[in-house]
Amino acid sequence: MTAVLQLGLTAERGGGRAEAVGDFAEFVRISMPGLLRYGHALTGNPHDAADLVQSVLEKVGSRWASVLRKGDDPLAYVRRAMANTHISVWRRRRRENLVADFPDTGAVAPELSRLDNEPLWQALRDLPPRQRAVIVLRYYENLSEAEIAKALGISCGTVKSQSSKAMASLRTRLGKD
């Protein structure tokens, strides 16, 4: 009787896990296009966007059950994670790529986006990632300053200052100041 009960519990747990994985796969399938688009806006190029989405979704998927238990909107959770991950990745790359001199020639062709000819897009790509994230969350996600602050884990004052600096940079680059 005990053995039967244990088997039943195991099957129940296994079934729960299979269901959770199924939910996650469905979530990925449905949200992937929007997340890639959002990642494109955040990173400035489609390849980095794909890497960012893949990385964050894998992390979230490995803890899918606990993400669901928290009761947050999974999509909002993933987007916040993407913004923060992008900023962290940029910090790491910035440390790794600092060199004293420019290379003689570009070894790798720059990754082109279909928006590369847009001056605003170019100006946006040149922003530091946190400023860029603030702009994306503000104009892409239509989040308020408080929501942006919560998403990025920073204060409202920092959001305001980052936004102000970003807009000033964009105006300067576009010759609109």
């Binding site: 990925v28 296009p33 890639l36 688009r37 794909a50 894998e58």
Partner: peptide
């Protein structure tokens, strides 16, 4: 918009 590859979903699920 970024093109979604056909195996994107399964790749993410496997990675997770």
């Amino acid at each position: 918009d970024v093109h979604v590859t056909p195996d994107a979903t399964s790749s993410v699920v496997r990675g997770a």
